[in-house]
Design a binder for these strands. Structure first.
Lengths: 339, 339
DNA sequence: TGTAGCACCGAAAACGTTTTTGAACTAGGG
DNA sequence: CCCTAGTTCAAAAACGTTTTCGGTGCTACA
């Protein structure tokens, strides 16, 4: 009852297994009549191909593996990567692929590597959103022969899609400058990651472009984009004799923490100190003061990543590509104009 | 080079294919010596089993499908379901299963049903977080023979894990009452969903318990938990001659919208009107006023769902179960005590 | 009439496993 | 010395497809 297979349709229609299979797969050497007959009975009998058998025979699974390790333990809930993964998923689904989450464990096998797991599952390609989180595991994967695409890396080893973090931070700092700010602090994120490095460079570039001095003591480290680290970092800045009039923060959560610190010190944002964020979290538009920030185009990033990967799957000889997606400045109320 | 298979190990060790396979799968009829020899050469040669071949032979894929349709277009980013899926994923991965997202489309086949897709992919079980979103597609799936588990349903057709939405709303409304409030509004969410219905019941139960009148005009509909719908709903309440002193809102985003409406009317929360939310979004703890709300235990929900499903996969005769997970009240500053 | 080409079809090998069945051998008990 | 039971192994079928290769019959053309 359950499970009708090609053989059943062959028997029912009188054609051979070969012909039935061909009818499904668009081969030219099957007559219109046969094709119609086969397709109809297939439908009537509720036939559906067995993906495992198919993958085995074709060495092709129409499955994309996603490998997502990150330090915060957010997993899928990570506001940036979660969004990117969602859009990536939508894009590959449109092409008939399914998304498979690859874990380190695998059933009843002493395999403990992402790469092994991918090979075992026979995925057609891999998506590594957070490739910067460089365990040996990930490295091994990145140098493998599998078609793959990553986000926020730049190495030539993989297809990559990056946010233009350099320009993004440069733009928002120049916006601060245009609003009359001359002493601008920077709360940055981890310096072992693409994003953190690029954003700091952008901060510095904006200063150079406008002949502003870059002060070491105005640059303070945050950690993992957390609210708490933003709060602590801001406290450091507040202790300075000549505090900055504005702070460009490298993440929205950190910016919120920074604002909290400002308010606790009896000051106000933007009244006394202007603050900008980075990420454009969904929730921001509902908060007061509305945080001026840089938004990354997660939708385009996800879609573009899917593009690159799918293309390379279709044509494995395609060289790796890197594309850069522009960011966008969202102006709200957390920056005061200085006269 | 690439792809070493059982046959290669058989040739290398001198044992048969059968014995090699058995060595891997813990069969008793292979000597310790043989087993050791086989395992060692397998490791040396970098062997890994082909999951597709395995699935084909065993009719078992160690893959769980997740079907997630929701009306907001958030997908994975949905704050509640995203979290549940993440914890579910972690739980099944621990048992050696992988998570496969099931889309409606499938490669080169005119299949347009979730159920078909699941069968085609040969998943061992299905996770349907948002089963309440009842398209025919989903219904067809829910009555199928596949092991499955859902969230926020109650039908007996599937294993189900539910938040105790009834008790949750009852608790927070009773908290409002304990703070001296006697006229309490309710902004509710969609009435065609489990959560909306249960929460309204909880609101009413709290009133009955304390002999408070339930006023029809105090209950106003929100839509899809959106900020905007909360804003609009609150405006309706504000137009009443005798406004409530507190409003129990059925979702945090709607609550934020409600607060916005209150402030726009020149009133303050909690000064003039107290507001409570539902969901305990991560971001809330960083906002002012801190929203008093009910948190759902997404971690436990996800883990429990995994439990139920995995158990039924191991023993398909197991009857469907429903479990209820308790919620938790988070008291912050959006409720004023009335004297 | 012979032949080249075309349209249609099927046999069989291949994909890489698991699992059933039974064979060969060993040891132990009578 | 025979029989039984236990241990270790291998042959082969099965899982459900795809794909290569060759075969048949027909048409058209020289």
């Amino acid at each position: 009852m359950l499970k009708v297979k090609i053989k059943d349709i062959a028997r029912e229609t009188g054609y051979s297994i070969t012909t039935v299979s061909k009818a499904f797969n668009g081969y030219k050497d099957v007559s219109e009549e046969a094709k119609k007959h086969i397709l109809e009975t297939a439908k009537r009998m509720g036939y559906m191909p067995n993906a495992h058998a198919r993958s085995l025979a074709m060495n092709r699974s129409y499955t994309i593996g996603v490998i997502f390790d990150e330090e915060l333990g957010y997993g899928i809930r990570h506001p940036f990567f979660g969004a990117v993964i969602e859009y990536f998923k939508e894009a590959i689904e449109k092409e008939g692929y399914d998304l498979l989450f690859i874990s380190k464990q695998i059933h009843q096998t002493n395999v403990n590597s992402y790469l092994d797991h991918c090979r075992q599952r026979g995925v057609d390609g891999v998506f590594v959103p957070n490739a910067e989180f460089e365990s040996d595991e990930i490295k091994e994967l990145l140098v493998s022969e599998l078609p793959k695409v990553s986000i926020e890396t730049s190495s030539g080893r993989t297809n990559a899609v990056n946010s233009n973090d350099y320009e993004g931070m440069k733009e928002i700092v120049e916006y601060l400058i245009s609003m009359g700010h001359k002493s601008i602090g920077h709360i940055c994120s981890n310096m072992d990651e693409y994003a953190g490095i690029e954003r700091l460079k952008g901060y510095e570039a904006a200063h150079k472009n406008h002949q502003l001095e870059i002060r070491k003591d105005y640059i303070v480290m945050g950690h993992l984009y957390s609210y708490e680290s933003g709060y602590e970092a801001m406290k450091e800045l507040l202790e300075l004799e000549d505090m900055p009039t504005a702070v460009a923060v490298s993440g929205d959560m950190m910016a919120l923490g920074a604002i909290k610190a400002i308010e606790e010190a009896g000051l106000s944002c933007p009244g006394d100190i202007s603050v900008t964020g980075y990420d454009n979290l969904d929730i921001l538009k509902y908060m007061t003061p509305g945080l001026t920030t840089i938004g990354q185009n997660t939708e385009l990033i996800g879609r573009k990543a899917a593009d690159l990967l799918l293309n390379q799957i279709k044509d494995p000889l395609l060289p790796n590509k890197e594309v850069i997606i522009n960011t966008k400045l969202y102006i709200r109320d957390s920056v005061k104009a200085l006269s």
